[in-house]
Amino acid sequence: MTTPVLRVQDLHVHYRTAAGPVKAVNGVSFDLAPGERLGLVGESGSGKTTMALALMRMLEQPARIEGGRVLLDGVDLLALSEEQMRRIRFDRLSMVPQGAMNSLNPVMRIRDQMIEIFNAHGRHPDKAERRERIGHLLERVGLKRDVADRYPHELSGGMKQRVCIAMAIALRPQVIIADEPTSALDVVVQRQVMETLGAVQKDLNAAVILVGHDMGLMAQFADRIGVMYAGRLVELAPVRQIFSAPQHPYTQMLIASIPSLEEKRLFKGIPGVAPSLLNPPSGCPFHPRCPAAFAPCPTINPALEETDAGRWVACHLHSEAVLHDSRA
């Protein structure tokens, strides 16, 4: 395997509340290869967005990164000064935002909002060159060059999100984090925007972390999928295997809940509600909702282990050691 461009190691993010720390991200680790497309799925409140923001170091009070490392090309982002981090944002680690409708400054022309990216990172000081680059970027995401002279309110939602993608690739970053980039768009535009994102990602050979809960979108876009539950990564596997043979009971139920066109059956959900992150259940956080829970589940929290090559799961059902112990 090639050297990963981004390594996340045992990341912990807590929201400090009066009632105690809310552990929104609780020991997440994964590697991201150059050019890879990783999908992160999970219910609302499973910590996906918090983790995406933590990678950019954009969390605001009361959220705080309590531990772990985020290595971009071997440099720990969490150890950098605020100014060093600012230089890395968008330059090497960029982001396509969640709310396409309101992500652009309403009182500035698109051109000025793109120029300021170059200025903030000391790129393209030459005016003509800058103009050319902006025109090129807009064409690359399927927009006309003159969009640069428009204000955001003169663009449709899909166009705005394309502008956001053009901005995100402006400095040729190594990693792009896309946090539900299409949640505000209708299905047709969603597809077009995702295709655009996919195309520019391939050109740049940038790695993408796509955060969302739309399993269909994930299946089309991602190479690998990570499933998050209660602030932890419970399964991480290539997209085909996640859909064909999910290992974690939560993933299995998640896949089973997707309506199917071939099969006529009752719509299935996952019974119960997502656990409180303030007082998570003891042992495996999924055990109260898990149909397959057995002896060790309420007491021991399973670690994320590699079961087959490239397949990682955090479940006692698949953990050799625990299975062996409980049978003995």
Binding site: M58, R89, G99, M101, S103, L104, E116, A120
Partner: peptide, 17 residues
């Protein structure tokens, strides 16, 4: 609280700007 403030931070703009 608007989204464009978040994106402005993500772009690596300086605080003053």
């Amino acid at each position: 609280g608007e989204d464009f403030i978040k994106l402005a931070h993500a772009k690596g703009l300086k605080q003053r700007r």
